[in-house]
Write a protein that binds this DNA or RNA. Structure first.
Lengths: 118, 118
DNA sequence: ATATTTACTACGACAGACGAAGTACGACAG
DNA sequence: CTGTCGTACTTCGTCTGTCGTAGTAAATAT
């Protein structure tokens, strides 16, 4: 069946990550699992994509990192969203609604095809 | 205001073009104007993006080109959609619906933010 | 003891989008 | 008759986000 291609989701990985960070700071592995479960296994983010998104977003000031050692002794890099990140997220949501609106004009639901006459 | 970024539309330019070709064969300049008007000026496809999409899609067998000289003496490259193109378009529509469903789980409408408790 | 899961990092390649620039022809204004 | 505007592209080079491959390392499960 149709799987989500990287070209489609491109540019929305950041948004998805930020959404999860709105709630609470988190780290790579957890974010990846939450995306997986929240999407009901429909989208599984690639590790490299995820970690490069962290790097990019930290450089852009949308998130901040800090280290924490978990109960189990594992050292993790946590990320927390910044105010700039929250703003960026909001803009992306607006953009999404606009984009959705535009794209849907070019999508024919249920095999409907634009009619020639008129 | 929020404009549509190339990363979002990426991978859907082809779909939009194919949608317009479902109806009738067309050529670059016309397609570009129709995308513009159909989207109510919200999306204006770049020329280079458009023409490289044509090349790519012809290579993939989704469209076929032929030359025609218009009344005004202008030589145009027309494109017509193939059966493969129609199938590809249909798949992209399915993919879009799936993607939309997934992305929307990460979009908070009207400034709603996921609640911490619960 | 070994495999799997967790939690990353580094490197390199690729594809689609796009900016800049150029070509060429017709129509139309001044 | 000169110049600008609209039409209809082409070429070239660059950028960015994604992803494949690979590797490290510690904790946990078998």
């Amino acid at each position: 069946m149709a799987a989500i291609s990287s070209d489609v989701i491109r540019g929305y990985n950041d948004t998805m990550i930020l959404y999860l960070l709105l709630e609470d700071p988190s780290y790579g592995y957890e974010i990846s699992k939450r995306i997986r479960t929240l999407s009901e296994e429909k989208y599984i983010i690639k590790e490299t994509t995820l970690y490069s998104a962290f790097t990019r977003m930290e450089k852009n000031g949308y998130i901040e990192s800090y280290f924490e050692t978990a109960e189990n002794g594992k050292r993790r890099t946590y990320y927390r969203i910044t105010d700039a990140g929250r703003n960026y997220y909001r803009e992306k949501c607006e953009e999404w609604n606009l984009t959705k609106d535009v794209v849907e004009r070019f999508i024919s639901e249920n095999n409907l095809v634009p009619s020639k006459g008129e």
